[in-house]
Design a binder for these strands. Sequence first.
DNA 1: GCCACGGATGAAACTTACTTTCAGCAGGCG
DNA 2: CGCCTGCTGAAAGTAAGTTTCATCCGTGGC
Lengths: 304, 304
Amino acid sequence: MAKSPKISASHEPGGLIVHISGLLPSLSPAEQRVARLVVSDPAAAARRTITDLATAAETSEATVIRFCRSVGMDGYPQLRIRLAAEAARRIEPPDARVVGGDIPPGADLAQIIATIAFNDARAVEETAEQLDPAVCEQVVEAISGAARIDIYGAGASGFVASDFQQKLHRIGRIAFYFPDVHTALTSAALLGRGDVAIGISHTGTTSDVIEVLEQARTRGAATVALTNFPRSPITDVADFVLTTAARETTYRSGATASRLAQLTVVDCLFVGVAARNRARARKALEATAEAVQSHRVGANRRRA
Amino acid sequence: MAKSPKISASHEPGGLIVHISGLLPSLSPAEQRVARLVVSDPAAAARRTITDLATAAETSEATVIRFCRSVGMDGYPQLRIRLAAEAARRIEPPDARVVGGDIPPGADLAQIIATIAFNDARAVEETAEQLDPAVCEQVVEAISGAARIDIYGAGASGFVASDFQQKLHRIGRIAFYFPDVHTALTSAALLGRGDVAIGISHTGTTSDVIEVLEQARTRGAATVALTNFPRSPITDVADFVLTTAARETTYRSGATASRLAQLTVVDCLFVGVAARNRARARKALEATAEAVQSHRVGANRRRA
DNA sequence: GCCACGGATGAAACTTACTTTCAGCAGGCG
DNA sequence: CGCCTGCTGAAAGTAAGTTTCATCCGTGGC
């Protein structure tokens, strides 16, 4: 036994494949044939049955088992699983999707999907990373204690504002959203100390939203700005500034990345508020879910 | 695909786990127990023998096999290998953020943010992975050639529907969204061959949306469903099925993950449509951007 | 309320895959 | 030349995976 009673650790930490390659010369001829097959295409080997692999290596099943033991595995099934895992790991990481990049003219849909998803996911992750928990905490506290919450947003950001309003409403907070500037201004004029006003604007330059937020601030409400640009005008009228981290999206992406980033922030605030009073929030959510139940039809189909 | 000449394809190239999550509600109770075990710890499942897994799921081996078939595998060994590969691919996120998991009661805001962002980003990525480009392509083609596009969605999905409508409108496509069922039904009744109707429902069980989509189909329009559950009722009335891959979100997350996933799909379709006629789309977008310019105030501040 | 039906389920029979045993055989050495 | 040693595959044995089938349970029709 040239190979074994040694305490050289059947460790093989990094790569099983590498480990096998290293052991190759110390294996018997028949086992080497098996090893070569395995090393050259681990994924394919993982798919084969032991008989299959034995045949391919022009040897018997017994030899394959011996090979498994030689490389430190308990048996063939274990080897198979390890191989599958190895093979999966060494799959090329996503190709050259330029972050924040444009979509090349010749791109097919699969590429488009990959690029968009990559950028969208990145926007969400990066937004979360740069969010200041301390500021969030303060905003959550303000919202939790507010008598009333006004949320402003125009265009695309209006969707997010509306979403936020709905969320807060569902857990029993008094929140409003106004699709119309004039109504919003009127409402802002009625805010006072103890109320909260939230303005959402990706660019931070939407005059309508800024104006309304400013009005709210004058009246003594705590103002919150949600924007992608920490130095944009909207931040001048905000007590608390929360920023998203969507890279400047090209016109083609439809600005969805910024939308997703905003929604993520909104979700964080929402969950933060809900967490402050679990019992009440849970109850409210269950009640609202119950309410739409009659508008749902039977369950999913079984089988194919 | 035993069910209809549907174009939705048992695709699942990206994530097997995700695929299983989506199918979960369409599985029988015993199979669901198996599925939950598998989803919650794929790596562990891969290590188990079929008998072992069956015991853990408090069921018989036969059910495990049935489960394998239900999710599109040939048998248990194949599932095992795929599972091992999947598990290896997803480099375990360092800390204990349970995917799709609940937020622990004691969590501070920083944890909440991290958890939410992680789940949201994952939903976006996984949705993109399992999207079938071929189906997308067909939908894009249908939209591009449509005389008119109706988009339906209720509640949270209504936001997405509305967003989609606005996007298409911005690049000069004739698209409509109806917040009200009656109006929607009326509109659907006026659709015909060459028109496209798109129904959005996370659960796939929203009767209002299904009803309207069915009406549209009867009138000869091409129907598209966007849902998280590939076997849900809405897919019965759809010519094309597009699925999102948001894991079942806990009540606390406010279902934002599913929203983001839907938006991502919508964005892909939008970009796909826009890419079909770059010049025209670009021009339209520039014109619309121009239009809101007067509602923007001066640039961002420099310095601190 | 009863019955027929269909789907879900696990026990058991069955098949296939994996593992062990063992005898043959090739090469090396006295 | 004969014996030993270690490699090897055939075949036996065991465990894992798969199929079949009887039972059970809920549903809807009469």
